[in-house]
Amino acid sequence: MKHIITIAKNTLRETIRDRVLLSALFSSIVVILVTLFIGSISLDQSTRIIVNFSITAIYALQIFVAIFIGSMLIYKEIERKTFYLILPKPIHRGAIIIGKCLGLTATTILVTFFSTVVLLLVLFIKGETSYIGPILVSVFYSTLESILLILISLFFSSVTSPIMASVATIAFFFIGHASSIMQRIFMTTESVILREGMRVVYYTFPNLEKFNIRNEVVYGALPSLTITLTTIAYALVYAVFLLFITNAVFKKKDF
């Protein structure tokens, strides 16, 4: 556990210095502030616009961190050979993967925190405090989604180049959000192969739409406790599954 924390701390230290990350955070904050102006041309729907655009900006920031910074994480260590100093140490390779995941998750939470604070300040200034609860729940859900994407990009980062790892993770992102298409296909198609194929994809690929409650935030609707617990359990189980296969690949890897 101590080693995992050490690696996580080091990863956090490394990633928060990344200028790309700081630019992305800055852009996200700018978007949140710009929504004040977009809101003014939305004909009395300014609060809705501010909330929707801002939580989407925060979400986009989380996805960016997961996909682009995650895909560089392992690869950078291999390329620069900084791994040569860590791997021979008394630390399980699995602990390195978990540590990296935790570190990048901590980075995601940190940038999410800053951008969410800006959003809440904007809403506070506008006198709209009724959305705080739904916003926080939505951000929590999207953080769970970003953790899964971090693990997916870590897996690909350990087997291929950063570009291919990003492409593969983006593909998983789209597949994960296309669950409604897949459902529609396997419920309506007559082709057995297509139906069963889609069913397999639907059940095995991560269903990222589960973590999307952004549509309900502006209506103040919160998911029930049962749904929330089920979603957290799904994220946990899938995360363990991803950690397992990443560890299996990473353990056998030659450097």
Partner: peptide, 13 residues
């Protein structure tokens, strides 16, 4: 609705 990939709310806006 099938091609929003998680950005439904902001597209509507």
């Amino acid at each position: 609705p099938y091609v929003t990939f998680g950005f439904t709310n902001v597209l509507a806006d």
